[in-house]
């Protein structure tokens, strides 16, 4: 039996999973939509991974990252639960030790990580506003009636991207509606959107940061060729997009799980697992904490959200 490690990255829009071996080679991978239900998404994810995993491998470590990392960490009894910035940095540095700048745009977060000599020197993340991220692009794709996966191809067709307000996506959206109603072609609007995502990112997250190459662009949005094109154009630098750029967080957390193995063997079988969450509001004091109780096979395993620690 050979050892392998599972990394799961549960983002707001998509859920990613990879299984790597001892040499960081990807054995199998999966990428599905979260659709607002992380536990269900992870169950589906594990099913896909399990079908593609050769029989001679056993899982020796599980790591979770992404915004639902804590919940899924409990569900899978993960050995490592880490934020996505750390996971992304570790994943990228493993494959590109010379990288100086990591740009990352995900579903609701965007970040920039600056690296010098393999050491992180600074990073920035969007504030709690999700302007100019993947969720904005996918909702606009829906509005325009095209699949978000085709977005990049449309953008590349355009010669004259329309100007779209880049500061705030609420403004951008009304700008976009007006431009569409006036009669601009679809590809020009889409190209304009891609450009506005880049400008928004550089204005909000990248402001004041010195961006030097080699630059790696990752996160779901890095699969959008239009956005990549405008990053290249505006930064006047080459942008590297790894073929696994959307999986980098999952790979990073799998590598971490490998480092922190406990000797335990994990199973991917989730069919019989009953994993439930119940929300309620506690009224014992004026704080009225919103609590979330988590049950695993009807046993309470954890509860979150209490200010006083009563639960």
């Amino acid at each position: 039996m050979k050892d392998c490690y599972l990394g799961v990255d549960i983002g707001s829009i998509s859920t990613k999973g990879v299984i790597i071996d001892d040499n960081n080679n990807i054995i199998t991978q999966a990428y599905i939509w979260t659709e607002g239900n992380p536990t269900k998404a992870v169950k589906n994810l594990l099913n896909i991974l399990k079908q593609n995993l050769p029989d001679n491998y056993q899982i020796k470590g599980i790591g979770t990252t992404g915004s639902a990392r804590k919940l899924i960490g409990l569900m899978l009894k993960a050995s490592v639960v880490k934020n996505e910035i750390t996971a992304h940095a570790i994943g990228t540095l493993t494959f590109y030790p010379n990288v100086r700048t990591i740009l990352e745009i995900g579903g609701q977060d965007s970040k920039i990580i600056l690296i010098k000599n393999g050491i992180i020197t600074n990073y920035a993340m969007n504030t709690l506003c999700a302007a100019g991220t993947g969720s904005f692009l996918s909702s606009q794709a829906k509005r325009l009636g095209i699949d978000v996966k085709e977005f990049g191809d449309y953008a590349l067709k355009s010669q004259n991207p329309v100007k779209i307000a880049a500061r705030c996506t609420v403004f951008a959206e009304s700008d976009l509606v007006h431009k569409a109603q006036v009669g601009y072609p679809k590809e020009d609007i889409i190209a304009g959107l891609c450009k506005s995502v880049v400008l928004n990112y550089l204005n909000n997250v990248g402001k004041g940061k010195k961006i030097v190459g080699p630059i790696i662009f990752q996160g779901g949005v890095s699969k959008n060729k239009g956005v990549v094109k405008y990053f290249k154009e505006i930064l006047k630098e080459d942008i590297i997009v790894d073929k696994n750029s959307h999986l980098m967080g999952a790979i990073g957390i799998a590598i971490l799980a490998k480092k922190h193995k406990t000797g335990k063997t994990y199973s991917l079988e989730m069919k019989n697992l009953k994993f439930q969450t119940k929300a309620f509001e506690c009224h014992h004091c004026p704080n009225s904490c919103e609590l979330l109780k988590i049950y695993r096979n009807n046993v309470l395993v954890d509860s979150w959200g209490s200010k006083c620690g009563k639960y």
Partner: peptide
């Protein structure tokens, strides 16, 4: 907030 703080401390 936790994501931001945790990664900041990691760094």
């Amino acid at each position: 907030l936790e994501t931001r703080l945790e990664s900041f401390l990691d760094m």
